[in-house]
Design a binder for these strands. Structure first.
Length: 351
DNA sequence: CACATTTGACCCGT
DNA sequence: ACGGGTCAAATGTG
């Protein structure tokens, strides 16, 4: 659908430009040693913009994709185990059908849901958990998921967990995901996403305050965002080094929630890039929007790129990657003429 | 109290 | 009929 593409392009363009602007502002602010709060806000806005842009690029894709990442898992007390998440798995453009399914079918009724299930975009990521490393607690990808079921799968050794967006009811956000631990390699989790988020929460944490809402979840999110801000800055100052603490490695139900952030992913077979490759000291595994208040410490995914040509991402510098991205992208969106000059971005600008 | 998780039951597609 | 996916009451948590 051309209309769809046009809309996506516009939105993507805006997000990228916005993100770049915020990045520039942040650099200025950092240079002038402005307040932590200002930097904090800017960081959030940057990440928000890029994540939204990537979300657009991600699209539903077709078929399954594979992403492997090493997550630093921390021990968590709760019995709920989190899941590796990769909300931003760039996988080309969505089909119009996919988007129609997501944006139009908001009526929650069983038959509609069944119908929707078929038309919703769906993609799978594989995330590897590094059990040697630790994770303090649940981490999320910026989306807020709520577990609504668990099922033993016939052919699978481990149960499959079902999650849906927390804001399904309040915002008709029908995104869901399934998490299945791999039989062969228990450190790998296959996360199947269905639908895209239409909610205004989670990944797209806006610098603009959430619209005043009577819903209690809003309050909670605000608190979480504050936590995020603190964590983000904290991590930035620490150079975002990987945090690894003990992990309670349970057989069936890892008591952790970990996440791969939208920055930590790339999907196999795609020509897209992962922002986490931009600078392993700054962006790598940087969760800009995790919403769990229980996870002050971040855990990061060290992505093992399965693709991006030769999986050399970690060695590449930001400018190189940006150049590569521009040249390798065959997405019309990426070919848009926005003046992203690699030289303008200091790979360490966030440090 | 308000949220999330657990888990058995139910629904639906194959 | 079977298995995967979802619902919803019970339960847990802060």
């Amino acid at each position: 659908m051309e209309y769809g593409w046009s809309w996506e392009q516009k939105t993507l363009m805006n997000e990228l430009i916005e993100g770049m602007e915020f990045a520039k502002q942040l650099r200025v602010h950092l240079g002038s040693k402005s307040s932590v709060e200002t930097s904090d806000v800017l960081v959030q806005r940057i990440l928000s913009s890029y994540e939204k842009a990537l979300l657009i690029l991600k699209g539903p894709g077709s078929g399954s994709t594979t992403v492997q990442a090493q997550a630093n898992i921390g021990a968590a007390a709760a019995a709920n185990w989190g899941v590796p998440e990769s909300p931003i798995s760039i996988n080309g453009s969505p089909t119009s059908d996919d988007f129609d399914g997501v944006f139009k079918d908001n009526i929650l009724d069983h038959q509609e849901n069944s119908k929707k299930r078929k038309t919703q975009p769906r993609w799978t990521d594989k995330v590897r958990v590094n059990f040697d490393s630790g994770l303090e607690g649940p981490q999320e990808d910026g989306f807020s998921w709520r577990k609504y079921g668990q099922k033993d799968i016939l052919a699978a050794k481990y149960p499959r967990s079902y999650y849906r967006c927390t804001y399904r009811n309040t915002q008709n956000c029908c995104a869901t995901k399934q998490v299945q631990r791999s039989d062969e390699d228990p450190t790998i989790f296959e996360v199947t996403y269905r639908g895209t988020h239409t909610c205004s929460h989670g990944q797209s944490v806006q610098s603009v305050p959430q619209p005043p809402s009577p819903e209690k979840q809003e309050k909670r999110l605000n608190y979480q965002q504050q936590q995020q801000s603190q964590d983000i800055l904290s991590n930035l100052r620490k150079g975002l080094s990987v945090n690894t603490n003990g992990l309670d490695n349970r057989e069936m139900e890892p008591p952790f929630t970990f996440q791969s952030t939208s920055f930590g992913y790339m999907r196999t077979g795609d020509h897209c890039f992962s922002p986490s490759m931009l600078d392993e000291n700054t962006f790598l595994g940087f969760s800009s929007t995790y919403t769990s208040p229980s996870t002050p410490e971040s855990n990061y995914f060290l992505c093992q790129m399965n693709s991006f040509g030769d999986a050399q991402g970690f060695e590449a510098s930001l400018p190189e990657l940006l150049t590569a991205n521009n040249s390798s992208a065959n997405s019309p969106i990426l070919n848009m003429d926005f003046s992203l000059d690699p030289a303008e971005i200091d790979p360490n600008f966030l440090l």
